[in-house]
Design a protein around this nucleic acid. Sequence first.
DNA 1: TTAGGGTTAG
Length: 628
Amino acid sequence: MLSTMALRIPSRLLSQLKLSRRLHSLPAPLSEDSDEESLLFSSNGLESSYIPVDRRFYNTLLKKCTVFKLLTQGRIVHGHLIQSIFRHDLVMYNTLLNMYAKCGSLEEARKVFDKMPQRDFVTWTTLISGYSQHDRPCDALLLFNQMLRFGFSPNEFTLSSVIKAAAAERRGCCGHQLHGFCVKCGFDSNVHVGSALLDLYTRYGLMDDAQLVFDALESRNDVSWNALIAGHARRCGTEKALEIFQGMLREGFRPSHFSYASLFGACSSTGFLEQGKWVHAYMIKSGEKLVAFAGNTLLDMYAKSGSIHDARKIFDRLAKRDVVSWNSLLTAYAQHGFGKEAVCWFEEMRKGGIRPNEISFLSVLTACSHSGLLDEGWHYYELMKKDGIVPEAWHYVTVVDLLGRAGDLNRALRFIEEMPIEPTAAIWKALLNACRMHKNTELGAYAAEHVFELDPDDPGPHVILYNIYASGGRWNDAARVRKKMKESGVKKEPACSWVEIENAIHMFVANDERHPQREEIARKWEEVLAKIKELGYVPDTSHVIVHVDQQEREVNLQYHSEKIALAFALLNTPPGSTIHIKKNIRVCGDCHSAIKLASKAVGREIIVRDTNRFHHFKDGACSCKDYW
DNA sequence: TTAGGGTTAG
């Protein structure tokens, strides 16, 4: 039965519907699985005695169902509609079609579309936009082709939906064709069409074309500005995105959550923390409420920039949280190695009635793995399955990592062999990494063979295998790995580290000799080196992947990019302040030992972010407990 | 009656 609570339909309309049913002997409400024929049959020849109500009545009901996504109630209205005198009304049927399309019931929408005795361009556009908005871009494009073949002319509504579908279907090559088509139809400078078009161009890196479309718009609105900001943000063009943001402000447009979410995301992925903080300050000043979408990205920005405390503050201040907010917090704790906190918050989340999804479980599993919480991790793996979430490859990677960290390499191997999916390269990489940590050469070589087969172009596993052999003194085998790398053309990604000081990013590569402060930096590192040697530092030369003698290996090690970055930061930041260093690849074992002792020697907290996680070095220890 | 832009993992 219809219920005011569930429907959220105005009570006036509801009583009208009830009254009309009573007065005109309409059939009882229809079940969810009734199709059009059975609905018609159930009317039992009553149409003749049926006196129609105002057409605005149906229209308003359908619109309400569309806005509030009330599919069940929409079906009931459909059941009544097909018995009314409006059952051949094209506009009414377009509205009905739109209701199904917007509620995401594309199969029912298609059924209505197929049975419509007549269609106009709005009919076609409605279904195209339904497909486009519900992740069925291919169907949207197919239907658009059919629409043209049937001789219907698209309008600006059709074109913006089709362009969105083309962008999602990764048909970047269609961009210029579609643009040409829009010019031909005269819609290229329409703000909706143009925004979709410039978004499509940015997704394929055609930033100049996107800018041309933007410049040619007959009018601009917040969506067109946001599309351009988001485009540059996605391409790591943080400075450009910020410049456009300032242009948006200059022209008097008010930024929305879309603008902020893009900017925080960009600042986070490119390490522009100071600029991100500036945007955050602007957001606060303009009185914008901190809600989930932009807030989640802001939380992520602080977490990825190394400040777990600020991330937590954002979570606490969120006016409204969704599952992504919780996942972002869990991920932050996981990446920073705060496993117990992640476990606590995961339980809080469940207590609060938020149902964890596959990413929540991935985060808590990662947190357990990074903190060595084997039993807890296994418990959550079992719980995930009990909750009806089918583990995917990335969950298996984390479980292998979890078992590997605990040193149970045979159990990790058994787990891989018994998995219901074909092991991926990432799964074997997790085992390989565990073998490196626990110095299991034979199993490491076995895992590496699988990785080389599945992902031959990744230099990482070659380097790890090299390190496994080198640390065991098996230099001939290590040389064989190096030779294989050379023959297959696999190159170790050049390592670089960077630090952000006073709004500027300073980047360093190994043996950096171009920096204006290079002599000071070298002297500083020598000073630190002497101190950490007193604390017991012994260079671990197995991390040097070149064929040179022991002495030269030791020299090479001292000029790894993270050590140069640390010396630079020590010279250019106030005494006692926390140092943040970022690195494009995994931090090497020797640098890890050196920085650990350096944190004690210089009395600083040093936070290093590598590709895997954060390392919080303090008082001679690291939050990763030497496993990463 | 129909349209365009944003988030968490790897």
